[in-house]
Nucleic acid binder design. Sequence first.
DNA 1: TTGTATGCGTTATCAA
DNA 2: TTGATAACGCATACAA
Lengths: 327, 327
Amino acid sequence: MVSRKEVADMAGVSVATVSYVLNDKPGVSDAVRERVRYAIEQLGYKPSYAARALKMKKTNCLSVFVNYLGDPFEAGLLNTLEHITRKLGYFIYFHTYQQDQEEDFRRYFAGRIDGLLLMGQSLREETLQAIKAEDIPVVSIMEPVRAQGIAAYIDVDWEAGMAKLIAHLKHQGHRKIGFMANGDKEHPHERRKLAFAAAMKREGLAVDESSFLYGCGRLEESQAQMAKYLARGTAGYHTAFLAASDLMATGMLAACREARIPVPEQFGIAGCENILMTLQTTPTLTVLHYPRPEIAALAVERMIDLLNGEPAASSKLETKLLVRDSS
Amino acid sequence: MVSRKEVADMAGVSVATVSYVLNDKPGVSDAVRERVRYAIEQLGYKPSYAARALKMKKTNCLSVFVNYLGDPFEAGLLNTLEHITRKLGYFIYFHTYQQDQEEDFRRYFAGRIDGLLLMGQSLREETLQAIKAEDIPVVSIMEPVRAQGIAAYIDVDWEAGMAKLIAHLKHQGHRKIGFMANGDKEHPHERRKLAFAAAMKREGLAVDESSFLYGCGRLEESQAQMAKYLARGTAGYHTAFLAASDLMATGMLAACREARIPVPEQFGIAGCENILMTLQTTPTLTVLHYPRPEIAALAVERMIDLLNGEPAASSKLETKLLVRDSS
DNA sequence: TTGTATGCGTTATCAA
DNA sequence: TTGATAACGCATACAA
């Protein structure tokens, strides 16, 4: 590990001068600048991140809590997050988040990251306190289910979106519409479930507990649950199903195929994210389009604002209804 | 930000004593220990990570370069990595890796992480030098395509695995067997392609460039490429296709369904990872089982070895053939 | 059993 | 235009 002192010695200057060159400060003669640059190059010197972070009280690192690293919907958000923040000079870390691991994370906040990005998770009160104590700004993509103290989130207007989907299905003649929910009430999918229920009521359609299946956010589980539902013989009770995620909608599609129930003729299905896969299913999936790049970009923008001491603000973007072959 | 000095003042002791308590050093009276603990609790003190990292020249952080964050195969590895390392007291960071971003990462190694985990990527020579200069151990899950200086990798024996798959298909009567490859020669999938070619030759079956399609590791692209292949009318030239990833195998399945080509009657398809999804496709997918939890656990074990100064070592585990309905 | 003092690699202030 | 030097928060050798 070569430190600044060695560079200074080799260039025959003081450590301060090396700093000036490194940070492009004015007031260093070209000759000295060149000598320092040469020494840095020769020695392969890299500034120590830890020392700089200690001195500056700034890490240039951001952290993202991800619900599940294999999720294609989240991946679309993460890619944009990573690109934009890297261009801004930040390093961004991804971790999977689970409620029961929050405690492990609490000691994580002191002097490691400048900001925290959430993917709609609701944090425990103590964790929030720890974050606040360290003065770490939090921005959530997707509105947390429990509002909490998180003042900055970026999301779509789920109720308006679900209303569009429901109106479309209603127009197709559907009256009994079900919903494949996540099941975990702390999961960001929960907000989509609530929005579905609210929109159904506003459309004058019935919702009760029998309207819901629970697919845990996973294709496989959703497929299994749907298969069980269809096998119960009460098939036909609902004529259409929405899902809290495209992955779960795809699972339902697979279950219908297995059960030889024609979609959309006998059963309508729709998702609410527009992940790439929904264009490749048979039939292609009717979805709400969730503008992931825009949302991620806005989230970063908000984060930078907060890091600059500007006040928190939230935004809700619009979804777009894409009618395809599954409805 | 509350520092150790404040804790010391409140407890009426020196900063050193606070350190002793914090690090569970012996030789502190119970009374003092209690007082310090109380002060820490009251003030909500958390040790500064940056300061500790600077002093100890150890960050307790590991980094993982991931090919694609939405990939279900990689996700299975990441989950295990995260669990095990966290239990060992490490924080683990995930980043997506792309060749053209290596330069950005070069300054990342100085004082930020103790070790680097790769998912089969081949790094540039300069990057490798930078890593070596910082004395950061590297362990790769999946053998890198270009051997390089990476002395520690954990993988399965791909050639033996591909041989099992091919022998199985041969036994089913297939002679013309194709392979859906990635196309990116630096991608870890490339090794599976090479293993396929080698195993085919050893089985006395023909392989040439026409044996390969290129799905870029993605379901959608694989499906599109397969659809194009089937539409060419030369369909029937190959009677079976393997894929470098289960996701791509699933894409081929979807393409066959679209083209109304019955699998496995007219066309055999198989994957080589055994991700969960392969149990839910129609038909279920014949696969090689890649033991992800075991591989990930071994990788962590090797990393800890290297961190303790023990010599590098590599391992190759066995795959298992799971014959299901697609072949 | 506890305290003092030093250094880790930086940045930044103040002198020279 | 450059150089000493004092922090930053922590761990630890050594002294008390």
